[in-house]
Design a protein around this nucleic acid. Structure first.
Lengths: 155, 155
DNA sequence: CGTGAAATATGTATCGT
DNA sequence: ACGATACATATTTCACG
């Protein structure tokens, strides 16, 4: 799908503020509301706009630990990787999962309220996988930056 | 700030779909539109609702590499850490930054279009810091999960 | 917190380029 | 194919009970 300058400006606005009204968006990018609306719909349908969400401040909702978990698997078998991925997808504690190259196989970003819940998570998801060889946990007391925006192409 | 069951239900809905109309939200949680609106405003003002955004599919916008970068600093000085954090905050390639405990000091999630831009980033942000001792890059060809939702307290 | 009415916004049909 | 205008529908927002 081709994106022109107007589409990119629309995406830029929406990435920064998803609650902007269609009218305000239209005037910002220099279109009529109906033309703007058509483009936003097209961007949604194409999947470039994946979803619209509200971001919450985790630490204002209670105790919060952010864990960066590096997982090393026993054997490089696709089917075994798939099983692990499926568990990671299903686990609500896992907020992000990256499959990486090198010594480590997966990196997870996990959010839990406390250590006890983290240990429960490890038992349920990590130790439960027979192909999991070992993992290392980096404990974060602070998420200093969290930016969901993507750098858009110049044109 | 105290959150009751209704607030939590509102947050749950909005985390899943920020584009829901206030009317639909109100009927979902069992309130009148005006009561719902007042609560949403209060949640915004309190900072629990941080922002509302549209999430884009990075890979549909062009080539995308996700890097997990583990950074080790030379000395544990707060002022020197602050300087690094400031640079990480300012760098558009850095989407997330976690200060962690243990052998590693910071973990960054970096998004770039290609290796060339990653190297430019390393020069500009990592090597440029005299207190940066070394770093390790885990390259991800795939972001398998990305969930911005937070687990809400039971009550 | 709910109701109802005024102010805004959205969505669609139609026309013009 | 794309955008503008205008109109009908839906939603937001606020004063008041």
């Amino acid at each position: 799908m081709h994106l022109d300058r107007l589409d990119l400006r629309i995406l830029d606005c929406l990435q920064n503020d998803g609650s902007i009204t269609n009218q305000a968006l239209a005037s910002k990018v220099g279109l009529s509301p109906s033309a703007s609306l058509k483009r936003v719909r097209r961007l949604r349908e194409s999947g470039i706009i994946e979803r619209e969400v509200v971001l919450l401040a985790p630490e204002k909702l209670g105790p919060t630990l952010h864990m960066v978990v590096e997982v090393i698997m026993e054997r490089d078998h696709k089917a075994l990787y798939q099983r692990f991925l499926k568990q990671a997808q299903a686990a609500p504690e896992v907020k992000q999962c990256y499959q990486v190259t090198g010594e480590v196989d997966f990196v997870l970003i996990v959010i839990v309220a406390d250590m006890e819940r983290y240990e429960l998570f490890c038992d349920r998801v990590l130790y439960a996988d027979p192909n999991m060889r070992k993992f290392r946990t980096l404990i974060s007391r602070k998420r200093d930056k969290f930016d969901t925006r993507v750098t858009l192409p110049d044109e």
